[in-house]
Design a protein around this nucleic acid. Structure first.
Lengths: 194, 194
DNA sequence: CATCTCAGTTGACCTAGGTCATTTTTCAAA
DNA sequence: TTTGAAAAATGACCTAGGTCAACTGAGATG
């Protein structure tokens, strides 16, 4: 199984496409490998690509004006990730993207995406569905932030992404759920969470 | 100018459509009027519709397990609103939708949307763009929640939605930015925010 | 005009989570 | 196998924001 299989399945789960259509999509992609801790995107750069994770894991995060890092999303394999704000507007974003482990990814640039969608409008549906799902997840995250305690958010995170947990440090999980590492440590003391 | 003009402009800002295509979209819509405080959607109902606000204002909110209300989004005229989670999955959601003032809306049901997209795939693009934008806004909201103080979030909210402020109570603004009404009151004391 | 309800304010006190510096543990690289 | 750096734990203290109840005030309703 090559590096495109995972993406092909991901697409076929959502829309029906012919071999030719699929080939054209794949033809537009650029494959890249990143080593652990390698930066894929820096703050104030324009996010030119939609990035599909074939293997490995990537986080997006921002550095606030106190210098604190906050993890926004964590993308394991079979997920797309980008700085959506920057990607959509074509303006510099405020997110970093960084590989958490050795990662293989497929990049679809905005221009290539436009080519793709112009030539095979069917893929509009694929991206609409992806974006709807991402939007729904993002909304739920806001809800959780407003209505759950840190411990509840942690439990939910662990339940939602059990496979990702092991490749994350406590600091990273703390950052994702929105607490400091030291509070996180105290919070889980005595409890068996993982 | 009738009730469909606003939507037509909204669409034409994003994609090019013929009169016929536009007419078909409009043909699928159901127009509804809501009075102040009228519930459009209740928790644990399925959100069958995408709702376009022609005039008035609608909020989406949830009630957490302590009985507290949290406002998730506020949609003034020219915006779409729904419980995206429920709408996309077709399962019962956990949001309420409520008119904040007398409101005229255009409803597009999931089935009608599917008809529309099947017949005129061009509209896929319209909904993809809408959803991308909504997703970007949602992501930014999470970022703000993680990295700003309550006062900073308030200032940002006021700057972003100046026209909406006047039709909201302090309690509602407090709920949107995620603080209690009493803290909100203290927080703005002495400051001229509005 | 009276009253009722609900938004907003305020006082007194509380707590979830933050800060910062120090220590201990883990784990990758030489 | 050692070593060095980063992750995690922890003590002492701090603060943003919450809680709850009492009070004020203004617009709606009779």
């Amino acid at each position: 199984m090559d590096n495109y299989n995972l993406l092909q399945e991901n697409i076929r789960k959502r829309i029906e496409v012919t071999e030719d259509e699929m080939s054209y999509f794949i033809f537009l992609l650029q494959q890249k490998k990143y080593s652990r801790k390698e930066l894929i995107l820096r703050e104030s750069e324009i996010s030119h690509n939609f990035t599909f994770i074939v293997s490995g894991c990537v986080k997006s995060y921002l550095i606030d004006n106190k210098g604190e890092e906050h993890i926004l999303t964590i993308a394991p394999s079979d997920w797309w990730i980008t700085d959506i704000n920057s990607f959509v507007s074509g303006t510099p974003g405020n997110l970093f993207l960084e590989a958490l482990e050795p990662t293989t990814a497929l990049l679809l640039s905005r221009e290539k995406q436009e080519l793709l969608l112009a030539k095979i409008p069917k893929f509009e549906k694929y991206f609409r569905i992806l974006t709807e799902k991402a939007f729904a997840v993002s909304q739920q995250r806001i809800i959780d932030y407003m209505s759950l305690t840190a411990l509840e958010r942690l439990e939910k995170f662990v339940a939602s992404y059990p496979s990702v947990i092991s490749s994350l440090t406590q600091q990273q999980i703390a950052s994702y759920i929105g607490v400091t590492p030291s509070f996180f440590s105290r919070m889980i003391k005595g409890k068996k969470i993982f």
